[in-house]
Design a protein around this nucleic acid. Structure first.
Lengths: 214, 214
DNA sequence: CTTCCCATCATCCGTTCGATTGATTCCGGC
DNA sequence: GCCGGAATCAATCGAACGGATGATGGGAAG
């Protein structure tokens, strides 16, 4: 019997997953969690009480204010004898996929996948196999070939403020640094993203999922 | 008995909605559709066969490649004796909300709403009452007070190219107009959006849903 | 210990952008 | 028939931006 923990901030989605999972032969829902922190608590409690923990964690990525799925995945896979983590999310930016895989996710599915695919993926994941939705795999391959930009945290921060429409001087004041420093960061950002203007940097950042529209 | 049609492109979500709806007393799922076009077909068939059509349509907005929820809502409410349309979507830009309400939606809920709220909303909608999630209502009020900008088609086009990161000269070449004209359009755009730079215009356009990240 | 990356700041220069003003054409409404 | 909005273009000017170069200090990796 494969035991599955469902992690999603939407009650509706949890209900749907539970319904789908429970009707699969040899699979049962072990529990639900509304965000990453709740998932970790669930796993900890199961271990304390000596129960058999879940074999597979079905994890969403964006979860409102709660702990993000990537962070939760990172912590779960750091546990001793961790369950397999199968990401099931609505849409996939390059950055999300890379971050999830790097955090130790065993699979990556999209929510518009047909139920059979989800079922197959749960079984495969329980066996330890890696599962990637075709569009996800394609993006991953394209990205590995391209070599990712890897902006530093500071650069991401600057990029975010750029996308809010701030001018260099405003950014400098917001971050308590000089305008010269802002410009230097911008040069590096343009370099890594292979663009040559702030607007193009915003466009590139959005399309690569480095930043999100507010 | 309130009959509900579920429209969402994610099988998982449809399953969840069906489970939630079916366990409400006096409510039953009348059918499912994966996009707007399928929903319209369902309604048409029900009417042809003389069956009682659904009383409430639970409608998502973004639905992959299929017909968008706003368009579907517009067509449904244009039918004779239309069912009530309750929008249930993940997130809400100002433009989405306005468009949905203007298209005739009776309610607007967010997917992270607790099941009780969804249940209450279905009942209220069936009675013909208007239901707005609190954050949605707040946005709507703020917007009505502000009065929206109403960019011309050409201006929207320019704004889109802005968001792609193009410089004025590139935009002018792309649209076969002079750079001076591009600048003139930009002045008007800044004026209407109440901003004073191209990046701020992009930010404003995104947050108001005038443009979407590619 | 040296090397590399990150973050910080500075100066200089050419380009682009934004603001202003003014003009022409076309189209639809009063 | 007149008026107003949309779209087109032009010229000017100061401010903002982008590119190039160089410099410092700190921390991680080797």
């Amino acid at each position: 019997m494969i035991r599955v923990l469902l992690v999603d901030d939407h009650p509706v989605v949890r209900r749907g997953l539970r319904a789908m999972v429970d009707e699969l032969p040899g699979v049962e829902a072990a529990g639900e969690a509304a965000d990453g922190a709740a998932a970790l608590r669930f796993l900890a409690e199961a271990r304390e009480s000596g129960e058999p923990g879940p074999d597979v964690v079905l994890m969403d990525l964006q979860m409102g204010d709660g702990m993000h799925g990537v962070e939760a995945t990172r912590r779960i896979t750091a546990l001793p004898e961790p369950p397999a983590v199968l990401i099931l999310t609505t849409y996939s930016t390059d950055a999300d996929i890379l971050a999830a895989v790097e955090a130790g996710a065993t699979g990556y599915l999209l929510k518009d996948a047909p139920p059979e695919d989800v079922a197959a993926a749960v079984h495969a994941t329980a066996r330890g196999e890696t599962v990637l939705a075709p569009p996800v795999a394609a993006r991953l391959l394209g990205r590995v070939r391209a070599g990712r930009p890897a902006l530093s945290p500071r650069e991401i921060e600057i990029l975010r403020l750029l996308a809010e429409g701030l001018a260099n001087k405003q950014i400098s004041r917001r971050l308590f640094i000089s305008e010269a420093t802002v410009k230097t960061h911008l040069v590096h950002i343009y370099d890594k993203l292979d663009v040559d203007s702030r607007t193009a940097a915003i466009a590139a950042g959005l399309s690569m999922g480095l930043i999100r529209p507010t």
